[in-house]
Nucleic acid binder design. Structure first.
Lengths: 215, 215
DNA sequence: TTTTACCGACAGGCAGTCGGTCTATAACAA
DNA sequence: TTGTTATAGACCGACTGCCTGTCGGTAAAA
Protein backbone atom coordinates (compact mmCIF):
# COMPACT_ATOMS: atom_id res chain seq x y z
CA UNK A 1 0.00 0.00 0.00
CA UNK A 2 1.47 3.26 -1.09
CA UNK A 3 0.50 6.51 0.53
CA UNK A 4 1.75 9.70 -1.04
CA UNK A 5 2.06 12.96 0.85
CA UNK A 6 3.64 16.32 0.33
CA UNK A 7 7.36 16.29 0.96
CA UNK A 8 7.25 18.68 3.87
CA UNK A 9 4.50 16.77 5.61
CA UNK A 10 6.46 13.53 5.37
CA UNK A 11 9.58 15.28 6.51
CA UNK A 12 7.83 16.46 9.60
CA UNK A 13 6.35 13.04 10.29
CA UNK A 14 9.83 11.61 10.16
CA UNK A 15 11.21 14.34 12.36
CA UNK A 16 8.46 13.87 14.92
CA UNK A 17 9.08 10.15 15.08
CA UNK A 18 12.83 10.63 15.32
CA UNK A 19 12.30 13.23 18.03
CA UNK A 20 10.42 10.77 20.19
CA UNK A 21 12.70 7.83 19.50
CA UNK A 22 15.93 9.74 20.07
CA UNK A 23 14.43 10.89 23.31
CA UNK A 24 13.56 7.41 24.45
CA UNK A 25 16.57 5.50 23.21
CA UNK A 26 19.16 8.05 22.23
CA UNK A 27 20.58 8.72 18.80
CA UNK A 28 22.85 5.71 18.65
CA UNK A 29 20.25 3.49 20.25
CA UNK A 30 17.69 4.36 17.61
CA UNK A 31 17.99 2.56 14.29
CA UNK A 32 16.64 3.91 11.05
CA UNK A 33 14.41 0.84 11.04
CA UNK A 34 12.82 2.07 14.26
CA UNK A 35 11.99 5.34 12.57
CA UNK A 36 10.76 3.61 9.43
CA UNK A 37 8.36 1.43 11.36
CA UNK A 38 7.12 4.24 13.53
CA UNK A 39 6.29 6.43 10.56
CA UNK A 40 5.10 3.50 8.47
CA UNK A 41 7.27 4.08 5.42
CA UNK A 42 9.94 2.15 3.54
CA UNK A 43 13.69 2.58 3.71
CA UNK A 44 13.90 4.34 0.41
CA UNK A 45 11.40 6.94 1.48
CA UNK A 46 13.43 7.91 4.49
CA UNK A 47 16.51 8.40 2.35
CA UNK A 48 14.50 10.26 -0.22
CA UNK A 49 13.76 12.96 2.36
CA UNK A 50 17.00 12.84 4.34
CA UNK A 51 20.44 12.10 3.09
CA UNK A 52 21.58 10.34 6.25
CA UNK A 53 20.65 9.55 9.80
CA UNK A 54 22.75 12.42 11.06
CA UNK A 55 20.95 14.67 8.61
CA UNK A 56 17.77 13.88 10.52
CA UNK A 57 19.39 14.92 13.77
CA UNK A 58 20.63 18.14 12.23
CA UNK A 59 17.17 18.97 10.96
CA UNK A 60 15.77 18.22 14.40
CA UNK A 61 18.29 20.52 16.01
CA UNK A 62 17.60 23.23 13.47
CA UNK A 63 13.88 23.02 14.15
CA UNK A 64 14.59 23.28 17.84
CA UNK A 65 17.05 26.12 17.53
CA UNK A 66 14.69 28.30 15.58
CA UNK A 67 12.18 27.83 18.37
CA UNK A 68 14.67 28.51 21.11
CA UNK A 69 16.49 31.52 19.76
CA UNK A 70 13.21 32.92 18.46
CA UNK A 71 11.61 32.73 21.88
CA UNK A 72 14.66 34.32 23.46
CA UNK A 73 14.70 37.18 20.97
CA UNK A 74 11.01 37.74 21.36
CA UNK A 75 11.34 37.92 25.11
CA UNK A 76 14.22 40.38 24.81
CA UNK A 77 12.44 42.63 22.32
CA UNK A 78 9.38 43.45 24.37
CA UNK A 79 10.33 46.97 25.44
CA UNK A 80 7.15 47.44 27.42
CA UNK A 81 8.56 45.59 30.40
CA UNK A 82 11.57 46.18 32.59
CA UNK A 83 15.08 45.06 31.73
CA UNK A 84 15.13 42.83 34.78
CA UNK A 85 12.04 40.98 33.76
CA UNK A 86 13.15 40.66 30.17
CA UNK A 87 16.37 39.03 31.29
CA UNK A 88 14.43 36.57 33.37
CA UNK A 89 12.16 35.79 30.47
CA UNK A 90 15.07 35.17 28.13
CA UNK A 91 16.58 32.77 30.62
CA UNK A 92 13.25 31.08 31.06
CA UNK A 93 12.82 30.83 27.30
CA UNK A 94 15.77 28.47 27.34
CA UNK A 95 13.68 26.13 29.37
CA UNK A 96 11.10 24.89 26.92
CA UNK A 97 10.67 21.68 28.84
CA UNK A 98 7.65 23.25 30.45
CA UNK A 99 6.29 23.85 26.99
CA UNK A 100 3.58 21.48 25.92
CA UNK A 101 4.80 20.75 22.43
CA UNK A 102 8.38 19.79 22.98
CA UNK A 103 10.04 17.70 25.63
CA UNK A 104 13.38 17.70 23.87
CA UNK A 105 15.08 19.14 26.88
CA UNK A 106 14.29 16.12 28.97
CA UNK A 107 16.29 13.76 26.90
CA UNK A 108 18.91 16.00 25.49
CA UNK A 109 20.77 15.88 28.73
CA UNK A 110 21.83 12.30 28.73
CA UNK A 111 25.05 10.68 27.62
CA UNK A 112 23.37 8.76 24.84
CA UNK A 113 22.83 12.01 23.00
CA UNK A 114 26.26 13.50 23.49
CA UNK A 115 26.61 14.74 19.93
CA UNK A 116 23.12 16.21 19.84
CA UNK A 117 23.76 17.89 23.13
CA UNK A 118 27.01 19.34 21.89
CA UNK A 119 25.43 20.72 18.76
CA UNK A 120 22.62 22.38 20.64
CA UNK A 121 24.98 23.76 23.22
CA UNK A 122 26.97 25.34 20.46
CA UNK A 123 23.91 27.19 19.24
CA UNK A 124 22.87 28.28 22.71
CA UNK A 125 26.33 29.56 23.52
CA UNK A 126 26.54 31.29 20.19
CA UNK A 127 23.06 32.72 20.18
CA UNK A 128 21.96 33.62 23.66
CA UNK A 129 24.80 35.68 25.13
CA UNK A 130 24.50 38.43 22.46
CA UNK A 131 20.81 38.76 23.25
CA UNK A 132 21.44 38.99 26.97
CA UNK A 133 24.41 41.31 26.46
CA UNK A 134 22.15 43.80 24.69
CA UNK A 135 19.82 43.72 27.65
CA UNK A 136 22.70 44.26 30.03
CA UNK A 137 23.85 47.26 27.99
CA UNK A 138 20.37 48.67 28.26
CA UNK A 139 20.57 48.08 32.00
CA UNK A 140 23.92 49.81 32.14
CA UNK A 141 22.44 52.90 30.51
CA UNK A 142 19.75 52.87 33.16
CA UNK A 143 22.39 52.62 35.85
CA UNK A 144 21.30 49.15 36.90
CA UNK A 145 24.55 47.35 36.08
CA UNK A 146 28.19 48.31 35.85
CA UNK A 147 30.55 46.25 33.76
CA UNK A 148 32.85 46.95 30.84
CA UNK A 149 32.27 43.42 29.52
CA UNK A 150 28.55 42.71 29.26
CA UNK A 151 28.99 40.10 26.56
CA UNK A 152 31.64 38.10 28.35
CA UNK A 153 29.65 38.24 31.57
CA UNK A 154 26.63 36.79 29.89
CA UNK A 155 28.69 34.23 28.07
CA UNK A 156 30.00 33.03 31.37
CA UNK A 157 26.54 32.93 32.88
CA UNK A 158 24.98 31.06 29.99
CA UNK A 159 27.78 28.54 29.78
CA UNK A 160 27.67 27.96 33.49
CA UNK A 161 23.92 27.48 33.59
CA UNK A 162 23.96 25.30 30.54
CA UNK A 163 26.58 23.01 32.01
CA UNK A 164 25.56 22.94 35.61
CA UNK A 165 21.92 22.17 35.06
CA UNK A 166 23.09 19.25 33.01
CA UNK A 167 25.23 17.23 35.24
CA UNK A 168 25.13 18.20 38.84
CA UNK A 169 21.69 19.49 39.58
CA UNK A 170 20.12 16.22 38.61
CA UNK A 171 21.38 14.35 41.63
CA UNK A 172 21.21 17.09 44.22
CA UNK A 173 19.09 17.71 47.25
CA UNK A 174 16.79 20.71 47.36
CA UNK A 175 18.97 22.43 49.94
CA UNK A 176 22.02 21.87 47.77
CA UNK A 177 20.19 23.35 44.83
CA UNK A 178 19.17 26.37 46.84
CA UNK A 179 22.60 27.13 48.23
CA UNK A 180 24.09 26.75 44.79
CA UNK A 181 21.49 29.14 43.46
CA UNK A 182 22.38 31.67 46.13
CA UNK A 183 26.04 31.40 45.29
CA UNK A 184 25.20 31.80 41.63
CA UNK A 185 23.13 34.92 42.25
CA UNK A 186 25.90 36.37 44.39
CA UNK A 187 28.47 35.75 41.68
CA UNK A 188 26.31 37.31 39.00
CA UNK A 189 25.86 40.36 41.17
CA UNK A 190 29.61 40.70 41.35
CA UNK A 191 30.03 40.21 37.62
CA UNK A 192 27.40 42.80 36.83
CA UNK A 193 28.64 45.19 39.49
CA UNK A 194 25.36 45.57 41.35
CA UNK A 195 25.00 45.90 45.07
CA UNK A 196 24.66 42.81 47.16
CA UNK A 197 21.22 41.25 47.32
CA UNK A 198 19.40 43.16 44.62
CA UNK A 199 19.54 40.27 42.20
CA UNK A 200 18.39 37.78 44.77
CA UNK A 201 15.36 39.97 45.36
CA UNK A 202 14.69 40.08 41.68
CA UNK A 203 14.85 36.33 41.36
CA UNK A 204 12.46 35.85 44.19
CA UNK A 205 10.08 38.29 42.53
CA UNK A 206 9.61 35.75 39.79
CA UNK A 207 8.98 32.91 42.16
CA UNK A 208 10.62 29.51 42.15
CA UNK A 209 10.41 29.31 38.39
CA UNK A 210 14.18 29.39 38.36
CA UNK A 211 14.87 26.35 40.42
CA UNK A 212 13.97 24.03 37.59
CA UNK A 213 15.11 26.08 34.67
CA UNK A 214 17.07 23.69 32.59
CA UNK A 215 19.07 25.10 29.75
CA UNK B 1 51.51 -16.96 14.35
CA UNK B 2 50.49 -16.60 17.92
CA UNK B 3 52.25 -14.20 20.21
CA UNK B 4 51.43 -14.38 23.89
CA UNK B 5 51.97 -11.49 26.24
CA UNK B 6 50.98 -10.53 29.73
CA UNK B 7 47.44 -9.26 29.96
CA UNK B 8 48.38 -5.77 31.09
CA UNK B 9 50.92 -5.35 28.33
CA UNK B 10 48.34 -6.30 25.71
CA UNK B 11 45.78 -4.06 27.31
CA UNK B 12 48.12 -1.13 27.03
CA UNK B 13 48.99 -1.94 23.45
CA UNK B 14 45.31 -1.89 22.62
CA UNK B 15 44.78 1.33 24.50
CA UNK B 16 47.71 3.01 22.78
CA UNK B 17 46.43 2.00 19.37
CA UNK B 18 42.89 3.09 20.21
CA UNK B 19 44.24 6.38 21.53
CA UNK B 20 45.89 7.17 18.22
CA UNK B 21 43.03 5.96 16.06
CA UNK B 22 40.33 7.74 18.03
CA UNK B 23 42.43 10.84 17.71
CA UNK B 24 42.77 10.53 13.98
CA UNK B 25 39.33 9.30 13.04
CA UNK B 26 37.15 9.75 16.08
CA UNK B 27 35.46 7.08 18.13
CA UNK B 28 32.66 6.36 15.70
CA UNK B 29 34.98 6.57 12.74
CA UNK B 30 37.28 3.94 14.19
CA UNK B 31 36.21 0.32 13.80
CA UNK B 32 37.34 -2.43 16.09
CA UNK B 33 38.96 -3.92 13.00
CA UNK B 34 41.14 -0.84 12.73
CA UNK B 35 42.34 -1.41 16.26
CA UNK B 36 42.81 -5.13 15.66
CA UNK B 37 45.00 -4.54 12.65
CA UNK B 38 47.02 -1.83 14.28
CA UNK B 39 47.84 -3.98 17.28
CA UNK B 40 48.17 -7.14 15.20
CA UNK B 41 45.76 -9.31 17.12
CA UNK B 42 42.57 -11.21 16.38
CA UNK B 43 39.01 -10.20 17.18
CA UNK B 44 38.68 -12.58 20.06
CA UNK B 45 41.75 -11.18 21.74
CA UNK B 46 40.33 -7.70 21.79
CA UNK B 47 37.17 -8.92 23.43
CA UNK B 48 39.16 -11.01 25.82
CA UNK B 49 40.71 -7.86 27.24
CA UNK B 50 37.78 -5.46 26.84
CA UNK B 51 34.13 -6.20 27.04
CA UNK B 52 33.11 -3.68 24.40
CA UNK B 53 34.35 -0.86 22.22
CA UNK B 54 33.01 1.68 24.68
CA UNK B 55 34.85 -0.14 27.43
CA UNK B 56 38.06 0.74 25.60
CA UNK B 57 37.10 4.38 25.56
CA UNK B 58 36.30 4.31 29.25
CA UNK B 59 39.67 2.77 30.04
CA UNK B 60 41.34 5.43 27.92
CA UNK B 61 39.53 8.17 29.75
CA UNK B 62 40.37 6.64 33.09
CA UNK B 63 44.04 6.51 32.18
CA UNK B 64 43.88 10.12 31.13
CA UNK B 65 41.96 11.29 34.16
CA UNK B 66 44.43 9.82 36.62
CA UNK B 67 47.13 11.76 34.85
CA UNK B 68 45.17 14.97 34.75
CA UNK B 69 43.80 15.13 38.26
CA UNK B 70 47.06 13.81 39.61
CA UNK B 71 49.01 16.60 37.98
CA UNK B 72 46.54 19.16 39.24
CA UNK B 73 46.70 17.87 42.81
CA UNK B 74 50.45 17.75 42.74
CA UNK B 75 50.64 21.33 41.55
CA UNK B 76 48.26 22.42 44.29
CA UNK B 77 50.08 20.59 47.06
CA UNK B 78 53.48 22.24 46.67
CA UNK B 79 53.31 24.61 49.61
CA UNK B 80 56.75 26.01 48.94
CA UNK B 81 55.41 28.36 46.30
CA UNK B 82 52.84 31.12 46.41
CA UNK B 83 49.11 30.59 46.14
CA UNK B 84 49.03 32.63 42.96
CA UNK B 85 51.58 30.51 41.25
CA UNK B 86 50.01 27.29 42.42
CA UNK B 87 46.70 28.34 40.91
CA UNK B 88 48.39 29.05 37.63
CA UNK B 89 50.11 25.70 37.71
CA UNK B 90 46.87 23.85 38.37
CA UNK B 91 45.27 25.57 35.42
CA UNK B 92 48.26 24.80 33.29
CA UNK B 93 48.17 21.17 34.40
CA UNK B 94 44.87 20.94 32.58
CA UNK B 95 46.74 21.62 29.41
CA UNK B 96 48.71 18.46 28.85
CA UNK B 97 48.78 19.04 25.14
CA UNK B 98 52.17 20.61 25.59
CA UNK B 99 53.26 17.41 27.23
CA UNK B 100 55.30 15.14 25.04
CA UNK B 101 53.61 11.89 25.91
CA UNK B 102 49.99 12.62 25.30
CA UNK B 103 48.30 14.60 22.60
CA UNK B 104 44.84 13.52 23.65
CA UNK B 105 43.77 17.08 24.10
CA UNK B 106 44.23 17.83 20.45
CA UNK B 107 41.61 15.45 19.27
CA UNK B 108 39.30 15.43 22.19
CA UNK B 109 37.90 18.72 21.09
CA UNK B 110 36.21 17.65 17.93
CA UNK B 111 32.61 16.70 17.25
CA UNK B 112 33.51 13.15 16.33
CA UNK B 113 34.43 12.51 19.92
CA UNK B 114 31.41 14.11 21.53
CA UNK B 115 30.86 11.35 24.05
CA UNK B 116 34.52 11.14 25.01
CA UNK B 117 34.62 14.86 25.40
CA UNK B 118 31.57 14.82 27.59
CA UNK B 119 32.96 12.13 29.82
CA UNK B 120 36.25 13.90 30.31
CA UNK B 121 34.51 17.20 30.90
CA UNK B 122 32.52 15.57 33.64
CA UNK B 123 35.68 14.52 35.41
CA UNK B 124 37.32 17.91 35.01
CA UNK B 125 34.28 19.72 36.31
CA UNK B 126 33.96 17.29 39.16
CA UNK B 127 37.63 17.12 40.06
CA UNK B 128 39.31 20.45 39.45
CA UNK B 129 37.09 23.03 41.16
CA UNK B 130 37.56 21.47 44.63
CA UNK B 131 41.31 21.64 44.20
CA UNK B 132 41.21 25.26 43.12
CA UNK B 133 38.68 26.14 45.80
CA UNK B 134 41.11 24.97 48.47
CA UNK B 135 43.75 27.23 47.02
CA UNK B 136 41.33 30.13 46.98
CA UNK B 137 40.50 29.51 50.65
CA UNK B 138 44.19 29.62 51.40
CA UNK B 139 44.35 32.89 49.51
CA UNK B 140 41.42 34.23 51.48
CA UNK B 141 43.22 33.53 54.74
CA UNK B 142 46.16 35.47 53.38
CA UNK B 143 43.88 38.33 52.47
CA UNK B 144 44.43 37.91 48.75
CA UNK B 145 40.85 37.11 47.82
CA UNK B 146 37.44 37.90 49.23
CA UNK B 147 34.51 35.68 48.41
CA UNK B 148 32.02 33.67 50.43
CA UNK B 149 31.77 31.12 47.61
CA UNK B 150 35.24 29.96 46.58
CA UNK B 151 34.00 26.65 45.23
CA UNK B 152 31.27 28.08 43.06
CA UNK B 153 33.63 30.74 41.74
CA UNK B 154 36.12 28.15 40.66
CA UNK B 155 33.40 25.96 39.24
CA UNK B 156 32.32 28.83 37.07
CA UNK B 157 35.86 29.54 35.98
CA UNK B 158 36.69 25.96 35.15
CA UNK B 159 33.47 25.39 33.24
CA UNK B 160 33.94 28.60 31.32
CA UNK B 161 37.52 27.85 30.38
CA UNK B 162 36.70 24.29 29.52
CA UNK B 163 33.92 25.32 27.19
CA UNK B 164 35.35 28.44 25.66
CA UNK B 165 38.68 27.01 24.70
CA UNK B 166 36.77 24.33 22.92
CA UNK B 167 34.57 26.05 20.52
CA UNK B 168 35.30 29.69 20.03
CA UNK B 169 38.98 30.20 20.52
CA UNK B 170 39.81 27.88 17.69
CA UNK B 171 38.59 30.24 14.99
CA UNK B 172 39.56 33.53 16.54
CA UNK B 173 42.12 36.15 15.72
CA UNK B 174 44.93 36.86 18.14
CA UNK B 175 43.45 40.21 19.05
CA UNK B 176 40.10 38.58 19.71
CA UNK B 177 41.77 36.06 21.94
CA UNK B 178 43.59 38.75 23.85
CA UNK B 179 40.57 40.94 24.46
CA UNK B 180 38.62 37.91 25.57
CA UNK B 181 41.41 37.03 27.93
CA UNK B 182 41.35 40.52 29.38
CA UNK B 183 37.62 40.33 29.90
CA UNK B 184 38.08 36.95 31.52
CA UNK B 185 40.73 38.21 33.91
CA UNK B 186 38.57 41.18 34.80
CA UNK B 187 35.61 38.95 35.55
CA UNK B 188 37.67 36.62 37.70
CA UNK B 189 38.92 39.58 39.65
CA UNK B 190 35.36 40.56 40.36
CA UNK B 191 34.39 37.05 41.36
CA UNK B 192 37.33 36.75 43.70
CA UNK B 193 36.88 40.25 45.06
CA UNK B 194 40.37 41.50 44.33
CA UNK B 195 41.25 44.98 43.18
CA UNK B 196 41.29 45.73 39.52
CA UNK B 197 44.37 44.71 37.60
CA UNK B 198 46.17 42.58 40.13
CA UNK B 199 45.22 39.37 38.40
CA UNK B 200 46.20 40.65 34.99
CA UNK B 201 49.62 41.41 36.40
CA UNK B 202 49.86 37.95 37.80
CA UNK B 203 48.97 36.36 34.50
CA UNK B 204 51.57 38.38 32.67
CA UNK B 205 54.14 37.29 35.23
CA UNK B 206 53.76 33.80 33.88
CA UNK B 207 54.13 34.89 30.31
CA UNK B 208 51.93 34.02 27.38
CA UNK B 209 51.65 30.44 28.54
CA UNK B 210 47.99 31.12 29.14
CA UNK B 211 46.92 32.10 25.68
CA UNK B 212 47.06 28.56 24.44
CA UNK B 213 46.00 26.75 27.55
CA UNK B 214 43.39 24.36 26.35
CA UNK B 215 41.33 22.55 28.90
C1' DT C 1 4.42 12.59 -20.33
C1' DT C 2 7.17 14.27 -16.90
C1' DT C 3 7.95 14.98 -12.17
C1' DT C 4 7.49 13.77 -7.49
C1' DA C 5 7.08 10.57 -3.88
C1' DC C 6 7.65 6.04 -2.74
C1' DC C 7 9.15 1.09 -2.47
C1' DG C 8 12.04 -2.99 -0.85
C1' DA C 9 15.78 -6.05 -2.12
C1' DC C 10 20.48 -5.73 -1.66
C1' DA C 11 25.49 -4.73 -0.53
C1' DG C 12 28.96 -3.80 2.60
C1' DG C 13 30.48 -3.09 7.12
C1' DC C 14 29.98 -3.27 11.88
C1' DA C 15 30.18 -5.03 17.02
C1' DG C 16 30.10 -8.75 19.71
C1' DT C 17 30.03 -14.19 20.48
C1' DC C 18 31.78 -18.73 20.92
C1' DG C 19 33.97 -23.10 20.55
C1' DG C 20 38.25 -24.32 20.15
C1' DT C 21 43.56 -23.87 20.25
C1' DC C 22 48.05 -22.76 21.79
C1' DT C 23 51.60 -22.07 25.40
C1' DA C 24 53.84 -21.05 29.71
C1' DT C 25 54.12 -22.63 34.06
C1' DA C 26 53.42 -25.58 37.75
C1' DA C 27 53.13 -30.05 39.83
C1' DC C 28 54.35 -34.40 39.96
C1' DA C 29 56.84 -38.69 38.67
C1' DA C 30 60.98 -41.15 37.21
C1' DT D 1 67.97 -33.52 37.49
C1' DT D 2 64.99 -34.67 33.74
C1' DG D 3 60.67 -36.01 31.58
C1' DT D 4 55.50 -35.87 31.70
C1' DT D 5 51.13 -34.31 32.43
C1' DA D 6 47.67 -30.91 34.10
C1' DT D 7 45.82 -26.41 34.15
C1' DA D 8 44.77 -21.79 33.38
C1' DG D 9 45.50 -17.77 30.96
C1' DA D 10 46.02 -15.74 26.40
C1' DC D 11 44.69 -16.03 21.90
C1' DC D 12 42.27 -17.15 17.45
C1' DG D 13 38.90 -16.46 13.49
C1' DA D 14 34.61 -17.99 11.61
C1' DC D 15 30.05 -16.69 12.35
C1' DT D 16 25.64 -14.13 13.59
C1' DG D 17 22.68 -10.56 13.43
C1' DC D 18 22.06 -5.87 12.86
C1' DC D 19 22.60 -1.49 10.75
C1' DT D 20 23.19 2.27 7.33
C1' DG D 21 22.95 3.70 2.87
C1' DT D 22 22.07 2.56 -2.36
C1' DC D 23 19.61 1.72 -6.51
C1' DG D 24 16.57 0.29 -10.08
C1' DG D 25 12.06 0.32 -10.50
C1' DT D 26 7.01 1.71 -9.59
C1' DA D 27 2.78 4.36 -8.68
C1' DA D 28 0.41 8.60 -8.52
C1' DA D 29 -0.08 13.35 -9.42
C1' DA D 30 0.39 17.36 -12.41
Amino acid sequence: MRIVKEAEERRNEILDAADQLFGQKGFDGTSTNDILEKVGIARGTLYYHFKSKEDIMDALIERYNVLLIGAAQEAAADKSISVYERIMRVVMALNISGNSSHEIMEHIHKPQNALMHQKIQKVIIGGVPPILADLIREGIEQGLFHTPFPFECMEMVVIYLNTIFDQDMVDMTDEGRLSRLQAFAFNIERLLGVENGSLMEMMQMFGSGEGDSQV
